[in-house]
Design a protein around this nucleic acid. Structure first.
Length: 433
RNA sequence: GGAGAAAUGGCAGAGUGGUCGAAUGCACCGGUCUUGAAAACCGGCGUACCGCGAGGUACCGGGGGUUCGAAUCCCUCUUUCUCCGCCA
């Protein structure tokens, strides 16, 4: 979330930039400032009364020692009155804090100046294309991946339905091996680019989900394991299955003060990702196009605010390199305000062209969150002036597996079989499916 | 799952009702000394909020309570350790 001070100092800019998102709750901006004003008035009075009582308590102690009980009793009365008032102020403060937080949760991140205004994914801007011309498949080898999966017996969608339900595919044989190879390939590429590999927990608590902004914004997107237990119905296993490794990995740095010399902090990790995807339907969810569980290698950086956009470009180049090595036709989109995630200031999506489906599939999303996550995470560093400052967080998929598998199968199919790109053969140990 | 012990600043660790935002040591930063370094010595060294400032307030795992006054007493939750049980 944004800090109130930032909102105070940049009201005009915020209004203008949030306009690009089609943000409708502009009155929340003034509301936040008003609530913050109330907070200050409240604290002023409450601090003054607390100071009075602290002082009085010391006097009472001294008087007791001197045996002057009567004098002490008089002061005690005053203290008791103050305490009543302090209690009321505290209740008011809790309410104000709560309301302020709720308001701040409703205000999304401020889009970067380069973000195009727009309503939906149709307004996204093609930032770069990575192909000469879009591939056209031979009539002899022009199957969508769900048919290829059946033909070569490498993904069993029906078995997944039986075991769990729709959107939980079972990978078999070379299909499973291809996935494992891709994960390894992505992880090694990330390691070579100086990302520290981590294997985080796959379930996170509420604080973590809040830290990276999944809560309260995307609550319905996550699988939740909480259960009431006992007679009072106290919650146990109050966890969320991660929708992306961004959540556990970025939260490593929740409540952490890093050294300025530690920048840039680069982390990567492979995890399955779990998404409920409520409201999805039709051919968008066919095969691997949209599933509830998929594997992904995520790259995360904690960066210095002065250089975070350079960091974003560096991450962009990294992802682009992966797609080139996989010999897939891709394009990079700069998301418009309306399609931009709530927490992001600038996002580039990578799409790969699925030749058999003749459509673009999103395989990566690379974003700079500026201080939006760091503020919730309390992720800070001491700057050159010795002052505490919020760091910037960034992350990107490098890459998401399911759709990459779909595109590899479709684009590299031939009458003889599915060709494995050269760069991947060292990991698959086979050249063809 | 059962029984017991514990949680204090970057780390170690003292503190069992007032003079404690907290001793001491280490680490760290600045200085003296030194050709340089080390050692020694001197000084500094938590975070957030309010205030133009002086200064004030809050925080000793989280939350609540007792008290004029809580790191210290009580309740509760969480986590860690030890023992027993179960288990990949």
């Amino acid at each position: 979330m944004l800090t109130v001070n930032y909102i105070r100092e940049n009201t005009a800019l915020i209004r203008e930039r949030l306009g690009k998102r089609g943000f409708r709750l502009m009155d929340k901006i003034d509301e936040a400032i008003t609530l913050d004003d109330q907070r200050k008035v409240n604290q002023n009075e409450s601090d003054r009364l607390l100071a009075e009582n602290n002082k009085a308590s010391k006097e009472i102690g001294a008087l007791f020692k001197q045996g002057k009980r009567d004098e002490a009793t008089g002061i005690q009365q005053k203290v008791a009155e103050n305490k009543e008032r302090i209690k009321t102020l505290k209740e008011e403060k809790d309410k104000i804090d709560h309301d302020l937080r709720e308001v701040l949760y409703l205000i999304p991140n401020i889009p970067h100046e380069s973000v195009p205004a727009g309503q939906s994914d149709e307004d996204n801007e093609v930032f770069k294309t990575g192909y000469e011309s879009l591939p056209v498949l031979d009539a002899a080898a022009n199957l969508p991946h769900w048919e290829l999966a059946k033909k070569y017996d490498i993904i069993d969608f029906e078995a997944g339905v039986k075991i769990t339900g729709a959107g939980f595919p079972l990978f078999k044989g070379k299909g499973a091996q291809l996935k494992r190879a891709l994960i390894n390939f992505f992880l090694y590429e990330a390691s070579e680019a100086a990302y520290l590999e981590v294997m985080p927990p796959l379930m996170v608590n509420e604080d973590s989900a809040r830290g990276t902004g999944q809560l309260p914004d995307k609550e319905g997107q996550m699988y939740y394991t909480g259960q009431p237990k006992g007679e009072e119905g106290r919650l146990v296993d109050d966890f969320y299955l991660i929708p992306t490794a961004e959540v556990p990995i970025t939260n490593i740095y929740r409540d952490v003060i890093v050294n300025e010399s530690d920048f840039p902090i680069r982390l990567c990790g492979h995890t399955p990702c779990f998404r409920r995807e409520v409201g999805s339907y039709g051919k968008d969810v066919r095969g691997l196009n949209r599933v509830h569980q998929f594997d992904k290698v995520e790259i995360v950086q904690i960066a210095h605010p002065d250089t975070s956009y350079d960091t974003l470009n560096e991450m962009l180049n990294h992802v682009e390199g992966l797609l080139q090595k996989l010999e897939l036709p891709y394009r990079i989109l700069r998301l418009c305000g309306g399609d931009l995630g709530f927490t992001s200031a600038l996002t580039y999506d990578f799409e790969v062209y699925s030749a058999a489906q003749q459509k673009w599939l999103e395989v990566s999303s690379v974003s700079n969150f500026l201080t939006f996550q760091a503020n919730r995470l309390k992720l800070r560093f001491r700057n050159a002036d010795g002052k505490m400052q919020l760091a910037h967080t960034l992350n990107g998929s490098a890459l998401a597996l399911a759709r990459i598998v779909a595109c590899l199968l479709e684009n590299h199919q031939s009458p003889e079989g599915i060709k494995i790109p050269k760069a991947l053969q060292a990991y698959t140990r086979f050249e063809q499916i």
